[in-house]
Nucleic acid binder design. Structure first.
Lengths: 221, 221
DNA sequence: GACATTAGTCTCAATCTGAGACTTATTCGC
DNA sequence: GCGAATAAGTCTCAGATTGAGACTAATGTC
């Protein structure tokens, strides 16, 4: 039973619609999500808005993202529609959730993705669904590269993958796969991060390569 | 610019919402989608409905699927929300699309998934998105098994995979992978399909097995 | 009974993978 | 300045995985 739908005085099939964003960034082995304090200072809420007249959903999501971040996310994609009983900060009964990925920028508004218990039920579910969707999409779209700044070290890249996958990867294998996929290009510059040998900087620069279609994987079913 | 939204006289952010189903089945190396003739006998339309008061989206989709098929689909999952300018048979401005998978049953209403040009623009996009989503989900959820009847031969199973992936698979490799994944169980019965050696019948019966986590695949990026 | 047809199996070479050790380059503590 | 600590980047190797293609098995057709 959807409180939102029941509460409204609209005809059945008509609903107050919101567009909600899960803006994700990565830093230091942690994912962060943009959230600010809620309507009446109680709890937190995700950035959200309402589709303008005649505005497509994607365009609306991009607009709200720009309003929130001051820039368009490196990657944005719809996660799905959510309409459960739990309340929405704007009182909408149906929310279309979008994931937006951006490189880290300094801000108070990033919250650790783990500790988002202060979100409302619907928005909390959206965060969970978004993170699951990102993990599932990892191998099909440049999700991880959208989370990093334009130049990054291979260790950073690997750590970002490890964070999203919640498991460790083998260094040599990871780099071998990366090399075989022609995904990155060294910039020629190096970054010295405190102690240890300086790391080569890379840039995401995917190049065409022959389609290596392999058999189906059935082991996750 | 969304005609649907612009046309309506509702306040911004309020929209007529529909739930649209892409009911998919498989037979004989072909995918089929349920569609019937449209509102004024013009063109085709997907089964759709309107969320009931206080009804969750998933529940609504299941209800419409039952109404259409007389039974609950083997698998049902949301594909996403669609709200573009193109018209919807019910005039809704926002449609939440669900994919529903069922084994083949004889009916006039199945249309070849390729030749659905007579659908409206929005619903045509939904079909495309659904098929893409199914292909992407193939390795994470028992998509293919939901398309087949309870008992099937391994050749049928492989052909269904080949249809969804739009490429051939190697017989021995496919069976090896299947065996390693402990996904199916022979029923002990055999089916003689005209000429050729009879095939053993199998049933989908996934068994627990140790998590074989492999490195990331980067070659699809 | 020969042949076409489909199911199911087997072998083998090539490729891919993960473990772990190894080399290189830098900072830190003294 | 020097050795230890630390992190980047490379290498080797054995074992697992893969695809090609041949091979055997069981059935219907002529």
């Amino acid at each position: 039973m959807s409180d939102g739908l029941a509460r409204s005085s609209r005809p059945a099939g008509s609903a107050a619609v919101s567009i909600d964003l899960v803006l994700v960034t990565y830093r230091d082995r942690r994912l962060h999500v943009r959230a600010e304090s809620g309507v009446n200072k109680k709890g937190l809420m995700l950035p959200w808005g309402t589709p303008a007249r005649g505005e497509a959903l994607d365009a609306g999501a991009a607009r709200i993202a720009r309003r929130t971040l001051g820039a368009t996310p490196a990657w944005i994609e719809q996660v799905g529609a959510f309409a459960d009983a739990s309340a929405h900060p704007g009182g909408s009964s149906l929310s279309v959730c979008y994931a937006g990925l951006v490189p880290w920028t300094e801000s108070e508004l990033w919250r650790d993705a783990q500790s988002l218990t202060m979100l409302g039920g619907r928005q909390r579910r959206m965060v969970t669904a978004t993170l699951a969707a990102l993990r599932a999409r990892l191998e099909q779209a440049p999700v991880v590269f959208s989370l990093l700044s334009r130049e990054f070290t291979l260790s950073e890249l690997q750590q970002a993958y490890e964070t999203l996958l919640v498991r460790r990867l083998h260094k040599a294998s990871f780099r071998r796969a990366l090399q075989a996929a022609f995904l990155v290009q060294p910039t020629g510059e190096w970054r010295s991060e405190g102690r240890g040998r300086p790391a080569q900087l890379y840039r995401y620069a995917p190049r065409k390569r022959k389609n290596t279609r392999r058999g189906v994987r059935l082991d996750q079913l």
